[in-house]
Amino acid sequence: MCIVIANAVRQSHNLSVINVLLIGVIRMNVVEIENITKTFGALKAVDDLSLNVPQGSIYGFIGPNGSGKTTTLRMIMNIIYPDSGKIRIFDKEMRGTASERIGYLPEERGMYKKMKVRELLRFYGELKSGRKVNKEVDYWLDKLDLSDWADKKIETLSKGMGQKVQFISTVVSQPELIILDEPFTGLDPVNVETIKNAVLELRTQGATVIFSTHDMNVAENMCDFIFMIFKGKKVLDGTLVSIQDKYGSDTLRVRTEGGISTLKNLDGVEKIADFGQLQELRIAPDNDHQKILSEIMSRTRVYSFELAKPTLYDIFLRIAGPEAKEETDA
């Protein structure tokens, strides 16, 4: 039902109607993953993973390199199959089939270098949708400021332009589910902004977007849900707020006269991150931040302070950084 509405909405291109409808409908899950496991030789790339992606959401996949993000995305795409467990896309198990309802941007760009931009986009679009996509190609070329390059060969494009072309090839067939593996890697800030806006627009039109990224800021700002995978296992899944709530307000940001040198050996502080003019202190569980602040004030002059929830970047490092590795090793 939701998909039908979403399709109708996307075709109408009427944003106000879209917003109203999307708010009004009860979201179903576009992707349902149940206990999937994938092993390559001795390596368990994905281990007993379950995940639901609601329709119309932007779902961010984060995790260190080699943690299983791409493998999971490829399994959703049906390019590889899980050894065990189930994946349901649009409420159907789709093993062995390629769906025209899904658009996929792989991590490493794959384009025929000798083809011209417009020709390549039409080819990918027609291959995916089985219909002519000439209008859509021109629309996206114009939108991403690539019209002047439409008749140039792929091999003449810069990396950023190539990436934009690959992005268009993913969305030109108007898929309902868009899977983007590292869509912002290698892009300059202007192009990051362009792609971000395009993704947000697609979501507004009803598409569901899953993307993996190493940019925690992008994940924080764009995603409705964040999923983190580490060593093949799910370690985080939920909205940013719910994830941050798990960790509580355990971060004290201070700006002092003495800087980092005056903050050493504070009782109840697990870790200090020094940003030069600003320091972030992680408060150990069951410690009072007021006491710590008093101790700092007794040592130096405090210009400003803030009790905050950890950022996604910080949470990422706590799970997958060297500190976590030391804990695991111990």
């Binding site: 795409m77 062995g96 390629a98 658009g103 996929y104 792989p106 794959g110 384009m111 990918y124």
Partner: peptide, 19 residues
């Protein structure tokens, strides 16, 4: 070439392998 240039991965998002 299609495999090493990762074109195959894009195509497999559109086509079944036997296609």
């Amino acid at each position: 070439e299609e495999k090493t240039q990762r074109i195959a991965e894009v195509l497999l998002g559109c086509l079944k392998p036997h296609e």
